[in-house]
């Protein structure tokens, strides 16, 4: 039934990103047998949870979920508590702790706020995989303040080959921004008018890369993946800027022209006539 899951994924690619949670829930309701396939393939906005042991915020997604519980990267505990929840091996957990500290620094440098979490898991062939999550939200206290959210989901897999390691990185960034123009009348108008409205730009983009890097020690994995994710986020931020602020705006101005098209048409006709006149 790969076709059915593909159809559902195609549907999610077309429906408004702002309603992704409700739409995924509706699809899961329609086809409960494919819930796991769908939840594992559709990126949804990250949930912010609070670690009960440390009081620190962390991020929840499908990768740190076991049943109905989520594991905190700070205390390694599940919430709600699980006795037999999946946890990484001691070696990988040690790396996970270091990775969380490193990406916490990264988060502060680039996001100046927000929340980060890194989750690692052992792979059957002896390697490991992981996900780096970053989230920042701007929650306005008044409608005129900026409102928006940024969710980064970087999933990676690594395989060691002697002093080298091969990395495969899949990065998804979900970005949404809301603009609420100042309400009401404008002073310079001859007619009495009231206005209200908003502008929403939202969506997600996904990119992949595969790279080899040298490996001196276990923590080299973190510096390698750190650099790969940093480069990817810089590249994707440029791409998002281009698509959100460039492409969507171009389409609007392709639909409607600010200049009078009739006038331009007449001008062209006139020019043609003149050229013909001169040639004669």
């Amino acid at each position: 039934m790969a076709d059915l899951v593909d159809s559902m994924l195609d549907l999610m690619r077309r429906l408004p990103p702002t309603h992704v949670e409700a739409n995924v829930a509706a699809l899961v309701g329609m086809c409960p047998d494919y819930a796991d396939d769908l939840l594992g393939s559709v990126d949804q906005p990250l949930k912010v949870m609070v670690d009960r042991a440390t009081g620190r915020e962390y991020l929840a997604c499908d990768y740190n979920r076991d049943g109905e519980s989520y594991r905190s990267p700070w205390s390694n505990e599940y919430d709600p508590p699980l006795d037999d929840g999946t946890i990484p091996s001691p070696k990988i957990r040690k790396l996970e702790i270091t990775a969380n500290e490193a990406f916490d620094t990264y988060r502060e440098m680039y996001y100046e706020g927000g929340v980060s979490s890194v989750f690692l898991w052992d792979l059957e062939d002896g390697g490991f995989a992981g996900v780096v999550l970053l989230k920042k939200s701007l929650n306005p206290s008044s409608p005129s303040e900026p409102s928006g959210s940024w969710d980064s989901i970087h999933v990676f897999e690594t395989a060691e080959r002697g002093r080298q390691a091969h990395y495969k990185l899949t990065s998804t960034i979900m970005l949404s921004m809301m603009h609420h123009p100042a309400k009401g009348k404008k002073g310079d108008e001859k007619v009495e008018a009231t206005r209200d409205g908003d502008v929403t730009l939202s969506g997600s983009m996904t990119r992949q890369t595969e790279q080899d890097h040298s490996l001196q020690e276990q923590t080299s994995h973190i510096t390698n993946i750190g650099r790969m994710i940093e480069d990817m986020e810089i590249k994707m931020r440029n791409l998002l800027q281009e698509v959100y602020f460039g492409k969507t705006r171009d389409v609007v101005f392709d639909l409607r022209s600010l200049d009078d098209l009739e006038k331009a048409r007449r001008q062209r006709e006139l020019q043609k006539e003149l050229v013909g006149f001169i040639k004669r």
């Binding site: 690619r13 929403t200 969506g203 698509v243």
Partner: peptide, 16 residues
């Protein structure tokens, strides 16, 4: 806009 992603602009504007 949906090249390797799904980005949407959606606006509302009411006027009287």
């Amino acid at each position: 806009y949906y090249e390797q992603g799904n980005v949407q602009l959606s606006t509302t504007h009411a006027v009287s």
